[in-house]
Design a binder for these strands. Structure first.
Lengths: 211, 211
DNA sequence: GTGCAAATCTGCAACCTCTGCATTTTTGCA
DNA sequence: TGCAAAAATGCAGAGGTTGCAGATTTGCAC
């Protein structure tokens, strides 16, 4: 399999992790915008130019693992059972994410701290949320029988995305979880389903494929 | 009053408008990222350094008038009548915006074209939407009797903001309006109210101020 | 009209992110 | 041990953005 990819790959991975680790420490200490690529490179024992072989931009260091995150969501949405709605699948996926991740780990706490302290990173975060919305919109559109860029799809997805952000925030509050995270998620679903239901009752349905 | 602010102010305003006008033309022609500050400055007959006296960044030229936009919203929300919800006020404000603005003007069309063609500008647009959400969150929180960063507030506001984006999109579709814009807005409100109602039924209410 | 102070404009130097390109070093493997 | 691919590096440069100091323009009082 691809587990053992040779020494070369492993070393590259180690370097990548080292960059992340050292960079995050610096960001946390001085703030994202007050750390230069040159400093990160020095801290990670690489040439400044080499940094860009690992990450396309400074921001991407902070969000280094979001690719697998998205991949996991996409997979889950694609593999959903017959009769399972996109919303159901999303809920299930979120539950698994919550269970399988240590949100109290120093690294995660550090990440949140760094993001909260930097406008640029918050902007980048929003971009990623948008990507998250796009993933959802695909399945949601099929569920509702509407085009991906329709208003209904957009609203539902935006509300769901707000939940994601809220989850991030829940973990920020000092220490323990003031609420059961899953309860937070369920609240989102009550809201979204209530909204969708109201739409269904009010408007018969869109013209659809006409013209 | 402040209508006549002297020659100095007027000249500054004229220069500002000239920058916007010339810059937008260039953006439209070549794409936002393929126009440099130096070129904008040359086109507007100012020194490159002077550009930054008028706009803090290249992006801000495109969104030059959003300040008044936000100010108008804030004002409307602050001045709402007794018993009028934030949602109602928002709807009213949107209706006025729709009526009072020529969305088919060349300048507006150009702006939309430029934004759609540039990832950087779309990102900036999202930032502004976030600001829009913050404005709303304030009043919405009071309405719902919850903190501004609560999940419910966040969701409602996110859904409403999705409507704004959708409106932009509605005007993009080639020429005429395929739908009555106000009908689009009303759909949003049906959704949001349905969601809020569902929440009210399911959960009694939050603990509130308790620890 | 003259002159002064404040507001503007401008040029300069510098910092930073990010890219392309050519060169050198390292690594995997025969 | 040697070769080819991969990775790291150095260099030069474009472009956005800022701070600073000097030159210009403007508003206004005299």
């Amino acid at each position: 399999m691809a587990t053992e990819q040779g020494l070369r790959e492993r070393k590259k991975q180690r370097t990548r992790e080292l960059i992340v680790q050292r960079a995050m420490a610096l960001f946390d200490e001085r703030g994202f915008e007050h750390v230069t690529i040159a400093e990160i490179a020095a801290a990670a024992d690489i040439a400044p130019r080499t940094f860009f072989g690992y990450f396309p931009s400074k921001e991407d260091v902070v969000f280094h693992d979001f690719d697998v995150f998205f991949a996991s969501l996409r997979e889950r949405l694609a593999a959903r059972a017959e009769g399972e709605s996109t919303l159901d699948a999303l809920r299930d996926w979120l539950a698994q994410m919550l269970a399988g991740m240590d949100h109290e780990s120093p690294a995660e706490q550090c990440r949140r701290r760094v993001i909260v302290a930097s406008p640029a990173l918050q902007a980048h975060d929003r971009e990623l949320i948008t990507r998250f919305e796009r993933e959802l919109a695909h399945g949601m559109a099929a569920d509702l029988g509407e085009p991906e860029d329709s208003l209904r799809v957009r609203m539902v997805v935006a509300a769901a995305a707000a939940a994601l952000q809220e989850l991030e925030r829940v973990f920020d509050k000092d220490a323990g979880l003031p609420e059961d995270p899953m309860a937070v998620i369920d609240e989102v679903f009550v809201f979204v389903r209530g909204g969708v239901e109201a739409l269904r009752e009010s408007a018969p349905r869109h013209p659809g494929v006409t013209s």
